Amino acid sequence: MGIITLTTDLGSKDHYVASVKGRIYSLESDVKIVDITNEIPPFDINQACFTLENAFPHFPEGSVHIIGVHPSAYDNVRHLACLYKGHYFIGADNGIFSLLFRDKPDKIHQIESNTDSGEPNFEIRDIFSVAAVHLASAGNIEDLGERGLILTERARLNPIVNSDVIKGHVIYIDSYENAITNITREMFEATVGQRDFEIFANPTCSFRTVQRQYNEVPVGEKVALFGTNGKLEIGINQFNHEHHGGASSLLGIKIKDVVRIEIT
């Protein structure tokens, strides 16, 4: 039996996640359910994309990933199942797929629902879960509905690069309050080379060195480094959230803030 993952904005306080899992187990008790996260900020498909794109490659091929963020099918938003790099993805065609997939998916199928009773739907439980169990049980994606060809496009925030400046943005703040940018190691090395540089996170926070690990600076000091996902991040070594705070709060860095690298 296969693996079904959950990436949702349902939170952990209410009954919503439990009802989704209960529905899945009622359909197939042997399936394995993994919570990637249920703490995506409400309706934030950019944060859902970042989290899922950094998690799904570590799962075995054939895994089924439910994306339960802004899933409503009202306003003609389709529900889709996609096959991409050997993984299945189920969610609303609200732009999340165009952000998540760097290439065209191998297959796209619209999920035909049998829940048109006139009652409000809990799409993640009533539609996505049923489709996910079908796929996790080795069912064919073609059985879910007619083939689709085009995904709803959502613009990705990409860095701007020229010979002496890289301009990126903070795209994620993690649980340690590290500010993760969309500037990649490959981009940095190809542009900077052996030249000197200075990284500006804001007018009062800059770096002239990129470290390899957090512990290369003293405890409590700010640091810039490339994280395990290959993206430039700004943090504080062994931050103390209760008493002092991390990079986001102490340095005043927020999602969508500009991070600029000047090269000399």
Rank of each mutant, 00 (worst) to 15 (best):
A18L: 07
R78Q: 15
Y172P: 01
I90W: 00
E189M: 10
I166R: 10
I67T: 01
D9Q: 05
Q238D: 01
I111M: 02
A224K: 00
R156A: 14
F128Y: 12
L144S: 02
S163Q: 13
T204W: 04
V64N: 06
A190D: 15
H134T: 09
Q47I: 15
S29A: 03
D103Y: 05
I111F: 07
P41F: 04
L151I: 10
D9P: 02
A73N: 11
K13Q: 09
N178L: 02
G220I: 11
P41H: 06
T264I: 03
Y25C: 04
V64M: 06
H65T: 05
F128T: 02
K167A: 04
E153T: 13
K21S: 01
E146N: 07
V259F: 14
G11K: 07
E262Q: 15
A190R: 14
V223R: 04
A92L: 13
I90C: 03
P159E: 11
K32E: 05
G220P: 10
V133N: 12
I45P: 01
E221W: 15
N140Q: 13
A155R: 15
I66W: 07
S113G: 06
H58Q: 05
A179T: 02
F97C: 04
A73F: 11
I236G: 10
R102Y: 08
I255V: 11
V17M: 09
K231N: 05
